[in-house]
């Protein structure tokens, strides 16, 4: 890198840190929400929780999930 290493490596390093940070924040929130949803589904009668589940899992006949956001 010659005399420019002091500029090149921080550029790559910071890019890596920020992008990894984005991934970590995104995955953490996703995991937390998935867990919370899994917990909550126990609280409700089967039929209702089924409907909730289908909208989020891969089932095809789910109801509109994001209509309220």
């Amino acid at each position: 890198m010659g005399s420019y290493g002091g500029y090149v490596w921080p550029s790559y390093g910071l890019s890596a840190v920020i992008m990894a940070g984005l991934v970590i924040v995104t995955l953490r929130r996703l995991r937390a929400r998935e867990q919370e949803l899994a917990q909550r589904q126990g609280e409700y009668p089967a039929r209702r929780s089924d409907r909730v589940k289908t909208a989020v899992s891969e089932d095809s006949n789910g109801s509109g999930g994001a209509s309220d956001s």
Binding site: T26, L30, E36, L37, R40, V52, A55, A66, S69
Partner: peptide, 21 residues
């Protein structure tokens, strides 16, 4: 990231719906 975040938002929307239920 976009796909993951949208997924996460959709679950968030379901959680809010559960809250109102």
């Amino acid at each position: 990231l976009l796909l993951l975040r949208i997924k996460s938002e959709l679950i968030g929307a379901r959680l809010r719906a559960l809250d109102s239920l």
